[in-house]
Amino acid sequence: MLKVDSIERGIVIDHIAAGKSMKIYKYLNLDEADFTVAMIKNVASKKLGRKDIIKIENVLDIDLNVLGFIDHNITINIIENDKIVKKLNLELPQEVSNVVKCSNPRCITSIEQEIDQRFRLVNREEKLYRCIYCDQAYDPNKQDI
């Protein structure tokens, strides 16, 4: 088995649906990171069969809110001194920016590409997000993240 060093201090993003780690890497802007990041794909998992994991070393202050929008199954462990000191529960963020696109062809964002694609949470129980410009609902069944 591939061995990836366990980290002494940092963040472990676990239970990512297999194959989705690259996208999460992108949404968290980890491609711009100057710290150590390990992306592990297709790890055997009791819960998911296969899963992806991202490990971030020596950094604790990353804004992870967007993960609650992307995938509720993801778990986050904060590691210090080789131990899990905190497990974070993901919440649905109030707003997500540039994660999904508005599907309304009449929306202003369909003709002006430089506008940020922003969706705000309008109903927490139904996990319903709407485009802040045209109020179009985001439908997770029609658009993959």
């Binding site: 309304n104 009449r106 929306c107 202003i108 964002t109 369909s110 003709i111 002006e112 430089e114 506008i115 485009c131 802040i132 410009y133 045209c134 109020d135």
Partner: peptide
């Protein structure tokens, strides 16, 4: 863009009424 037009208009006028065929343009 709507944004640039708005920023220009705002340097002349005190208030703006906008109509646009695209939904959400006045919000932008």
């Amino acid at each position: 863009s709507v944004r640039d037009t708005m920023m220009t208009i705002a340097s002349y006028a005190d208030i703006c009424a906008m109509r646009h065929p695209k939904e959400g343009a006045p919000k932008v």
